[in-house]
């Protein structure tokens, strides 16, 4: 990669990275700084960029977690998002394998799967509400896990299908010839090779569910109360608790960041390299 050593290339790359960093992180930093602001430091002129040092305490974090129900919300969101991600990736990878390798149902079936998530959620929300009412699942984690699967499962299936299709089928075929069952071939040969896909699918199905608002609002009441609803509840008609909203936002980032840090080692080059000797 000789061209990368040219100075102008390095300069351009540096500028791009710096600009991207400012663009993507400024709002995050802003949110972080907001967590230390008092109610009167939100709309002022000139804006308070960095709050005074004596305000750098955890009061707003503690208030968000306790008075405003952040701990319960964190627990509910973790249960719902974790379960949705797990179910979507497990169920989804099997289906993706079947679609990619056996072309089950053909293109039309694959498209139907994708199309289930195209329907505007506003229209499906009330029918879903009625279903969960009849199943007595309103205000439970299950209602949200099932409802969110509409959007996460097709995503997981299609994403993983793309990754599996990119793999040469010869690997599994040789395993099958050696007497492995279809499941064994999938589990021992294909699954390890689509690591980046599985990681990406897990991460995004988790995040999609983590950030979802409308189902969380309608399908829950007070026993289950995910973060998005809890945070929206901090914006009253005449009282927006800016600092607590920001603090909840910062807290809400943590599981995602841990997930990325933990999962990223599986998105590394070379994981698939050695296996692909065909």
């Amino acid at each position: 990669m000789t061209h990368r050593n040219r100075p102008w290339v390095r300069l351009v790359v540096g500028i791009i990275l710096a600009a991207a960093l400012v663009f993507f992180l400024f709002p995050v930093v802003w949110m972080f700084l907001t967590t230390f602001k008092t109610q009167d430091q939100i709309f002022t002129t000139p804006p308070v960029l960095v709050p005074p040092a004596e305000q750098w305490n955890l009061n707003n974090y503690i208030a968000a977690l306790t008075q405003s129900g952040g701990l319960q919300a964190l627990r509910d969101s973790l249960i719902v998002s974790g379960s949705t991600a797990l179910i979507s990736v497990v169920v989804g990878s099997l289906a993706a394998y079947s679609l990619a390798r056996y072309r089950t149902g053909g293109d039309q079936f694959a498209f139907w799967i994708l199309s289930t998530r195209m329907f505007p959620p506003v229209a499906s929300a009330i029918p879903l509400f009625l279903i969960f009412r009849d199943l007595k699942l309103l205000d439970t984690h299950w209602a949200l896990i099932i409802a969110n699967s509409i959007f996460t499962l097709p995503f997981a299936i299609w994403l993983l299908k793309g990754f599996i299709e990119d793999l040469p089928p010869e690997l599994e075929e040789s395993a099958l010839i050696d007497g492995a069952s279809a499941f064994q071939a999938f589990w021992h040969v294909t699954r390890p090779l689509i690591g980046p896909g599985v990681v990406t699918a897990t991460l995004f199905t988790f995040v999609f569910t983590w950030n979802e608002f409308m189902f969380a609002l309608l399908l829950t009441k007070n026993r289950v109360r995910p973060l998005t609803v809890m945070i929206s509840s901090l914006a009253g008609g005449h009282e927006i608790l800016w600092a607590q909203i920001a603090a909840s936002g910062v807290i809400a980032i943590i599981p995602g960041v841990l997930l990325v840090v933990f999962l990223q080692r599986y998105i590394v080059r070379g994981l698939t390299m050695g296996a692909l000797k065909y």
Partner: peptide
Amino acid sequence: LIPIMIAPVVSGFQ
């Protein structure tokens, strides 16, 4: 990746 972990209900306020 941090931006995608901030729900629109939070980032909207920011």
